[in-house]
């Protein structure tokens, strides 16, 4: 029964993947990729990874999907006559090469599956060490305590992406196409009034729960960024070329806080990336949440900063 469900999910993934790469219309491909992201979230929870399911649904499907759709709309506005241009080119090598790559990956994967898993794998060591730690969610624990460099550098990657976006943004900015023709409607006001506080609550919950249950800074940050995306799409926020002082602080907050707390280790005779338990972890996670949310929002509207639109 469960195997049948797995096979059904896998077939769904394959069908959607094929639709993404083979469809004629770009818009359809984008929608299919979003649906694929949502289905991946289901697959993650099937595979016992609820943290990934949350992150995939919020970041992989929602934020990426919104970015892609907005970029599609901008491209159409810049060159409307290109909207229906042919999307595929003929290539004799593509299919054999793709088959070869797929077969290679499958062969490698099956060899990997055959390997017996060693008793003292990194995951087992992390789970064992987690017994003494306050964090009972192993994924958050691994992200902060055992792979801290990864997490710190990931914040760096987000910042670098924002810097890149800021550098290539247009000199004279057009408004977001969506908000250029704002559609004042009482329903969106009502929706925002309900949803924004709810989203902030959910983000706070995810951040707090991240220590012991699925959740954490990335999921919370992505959910908060979703609220920002909603505000941008309904015309409450508008892009600016430069971030305000507060936004600069918020952007750097994650990296700076993490690096500062991670470098106190030597004072206590510990290694550099050692993190004190307890409140320090929540401070780091909270700072990272703010930075992640703002970075993702700025990546979405592809601007250096953001500003409230005066009504």
């Amino acid at each position: 029964m469960t195997l049948a469900l797995d096979i059904l999910l896998a077939l769904g993934l394959l069908w959607l993947g094929w639709q993404v790469v083979s469809g004629r219309a770009l818009f359809r491909s984008i929608v299919m990729l979003i649906v694929l992201g949502l289905l991946m979230a289901v697959v993650w929870s099937r595979l016992g990874a609820p943290d990934l399911a949350l992150a995939e649904a919020a970041v992989g499907a929602a934020v990426t999907g919104a970015m892609l759709l907005l970029a599609y709309r901008r491209i159409i506005e810049l060159r409307p006559e290109r909207a229906h241009q042919s999307l595929l080119r003929r290539s004799r090598l593509a299919a054999p090469l793709a088959l070869l790559c797929g077969a290679l990956v499958m062969g490698l994967g099956f060899e990997l599956l055959k390997l017996s898993s060693p008793a003292d794998s990194a995951g087992a060591a992390a789970l064992a060490a987690m017994q003494q730690s306050e964090l009972s969610n192993p994924v958050t624990g691994v992200l902060l305590l055992f792979r801290g460099y990864d997490t710190l550098l990931e914040m760096g990657v987000l910042l670098a992406a924002w810097l890149g976006v800021k550098m290539v943004q247009p000199a004279e900015r057009q408004e977001l196409p969506v908000s250029r023709t704002p559609l004042p409607t009482y329903l969106t006001d009502a929706l925002l009034a309900v949803v924004i506080p709810g989203v902030v609550l959910v983000a706070g919950y995810l951040l707090h729960a991240g220590g012991s249950a699925p959740g954490g800074a990335f999921q919370a940050g992505a959910v908060l960024a979703g609220a920002g995306v909603l505000l941008a799409l309904t015309g409450r926020l508008r892009p600016t070329p430069e971030p305000s002082q507060l936004q600069r602080i918020a952007l750097a907050l994650g990296v700076v806080t993490f690096a500062a707390i991670a470098s106190v280790g030597p004072l206590f005779g510990k290694p550099v990336m050692w993190l004190p338990e307890g409140w320090a972890l929540y401070v780091i996670e909270g700072a990272m949440t703010i930075s992640i949310a703002l970075c993702l929002l700025l990546l979405f509207i592809s601007a250096g900063g953001v500003q409230r639109r005066e009504p």
């Binding site: 943290d51 992150a55 970041v59 970015m67 792979r147 990864d150």
Partner: peptide, 23 residues
Amino acid sequence: PVPQAMVLTGIVVAVSATGFALS
């Protein structure tokens, strides 16, 4: 948990790369 943490990192890196590429 280790691959899960790596994939979580990967998802965020993928979205940043996508955002930059779109710009």
